[in-house]
């Protein structure tokens, strides 16, 4: 990983302060026990669902305070990133069984159908309205239909993050193995 000219044993010159001295990223490869960090894995297991729930909160609160589909999707995505860093692609694959591109496509379809749906009721494209839903137990709840757009964004962004993990994470890792480089 480090460059070939090795001068780390010398007293470090000033401008070399940022020279990497060890592999600074934990590999995601689960099959190499030497590189696993139990602490990180345990933390992740505990944090992961919490963060996902928080992301749902952000999604729903978006209309009233900071939040919304973007931020929520990104938070959820970061949860998966954490999971990947701790457990590697195999672990991630165990959680997410759908293809990432399909997730992205689904998100986009949800958003586009939200845009087009009002036409069926004779309203302009992308118009929104307030839906009153009678929920059991909770009673009457009001829902702005634009939340569906937010849901689409949320799903799509999770898909994007997963796809990035697949490509930049797993893909590059595999390339490195192919090339015989030490991860």
């Amino acid at each position: 990983m480090t460059t070939s000219r090795d001068e780390s044993h010398d007293p470090m010159p000033f401008e070399e302060w940022d020279r990497p001295r060890e592999a600074w990223l934990l590999s995601g490869d689960c099959r190499r026990p030497g590189q696993r960090s139990l602490l990180l894995e345990m933390t992740t297991r505990a944090v992961f669902p919490t963060v996902l729930v928080f992301s749902l909160y952000l999604l729903l609160v978006g209309h009233y305070g900071p939040g919304g589909g973007f931020s929520a999707g990104l938070v959820a995505g970061l949860a998966f990133v954490l999971r990947y860093i701790a457990g590697g692609s195999d672990d991630l694959g165990a959680v997410v069984r759908v293809r990432a591109p399909a997730v992205i496509g689904t998100g986009l379809v949800i958003a586009l159908l939200t845009a087009l749906a009002p036409v069926a009721w004779g309203a302009p494209v992308l118009s929104t309205t307030k839906l009153a839903v009678a929920l059991p137990l909770l009673g009457r709840a009001e829902l702005q239909t634009s939340v569906f757009l937010d849901v689409g964004v949320y799903v799509l962004i999770i898909g994007v993050v997963l796809d990035l993990l697949r490509a930049l994470g797993t893909g590059i890792e595999r390339d490195m193995r192919d090339a015989g480089e030490d991860a």
Binding site: G65, G67, I104, L108, V147, V160
Partner: peptide, 30 residues
């Protein structure tokens, strides 16, 4: 628009098309 958060209202309602296209860009980038 049913949103106290004006920025959020702009993003998902007043200018929702921008958002739609923007997630299209994300779709492409991925």
């Amino acid at each position: 628009a049913g949103a106290n958060n004006v920025v959020s209202a702009i993003i998902v309602d007043f200018r929702a098309l921008d958002t739609l296209v923007e997630i299209g860009v994300l779709f492409i980038a991925a």
